[in-house]
Amino acid sequence: MFKNVYNWIDERLDITPLWRDVADHEVPEHVNPAHHFSAFVYCFGGLTFFITVIQILSGMFLTMYYVPDIINAYASVDFLQHQVAFGQIVRGMHHFGASLVIVMMFLHTLRVFFTGSYKAPREMNWVVGMLIFFIMLGLGFTGYLLPWDNKAYYATKVGVEIAASVPYIGSYIADFLYGGDIVGAQTLTRFFAIHVFFLPGALIAMLAAHFLMIRRQGISGPL
């Protein structure tokens, strides 16, 4: 049944080469922890992606209840955490997953650095990886404001004040992030939009580029 449907589509669109190109490659011995346990350091990139997928999924479920305005934001987070079935788990996965992503990404970056895998011809992939790193930090910063409790409010205030101390463009950055003169209603909706639409969009594009480059160039050889 499935095979017939697949064949029907494949006859028309020739989709086999698309996924076979991704799926059909070999994992060399030097990165396989089944052969050398120390090769577990090569797993951090995959784990980062795994946690990122968890972040995207849990975030999608959170937006079913979260309300990005200053009157209801806190109450909606309180409600989804304490009244909604499994709400604590979903918010917990998103909250702690944010830290876990940073940890995994950090370890992945260190692995790539210390194995010299960023060297020619993989320079571009390193640069894209660093851009992913900055996007992740941006996601952490914007997401921190959304529960709208005191910790969120004052961390954002201090963060934007630091950004505002940059000469010439500082005041523009602060205006852009605040959407006014203080952390307020506009700031919350902006941070929500940046956190939920702009940065994830950029992140997915960068991840696609990251993975495409890995497939194109292959994994770096043993040291």
């Binding site: 806190y74 917990g92 996965m93 909250h95 702690f96 409790d149 910790k151 969120a152 004052y154 961390a155």
Partner: peptide, 28 residues
């Protein structure tokens, strides 16, 4: 972990609260 440890939530943001110690997330 998420079942054992509820994610933290403080009191609603109060811009007039002068006693609150601002603290960014740990990686900043």
């Amino acid at each position: 972990w998420t079942i054992a440890e509820p994610p933290p939530l403080g009191y609603p943001a109060d811009p007039t609260n002068a006693a609150f110690i601002p603290m960014p997330d740990w990686y900043f």
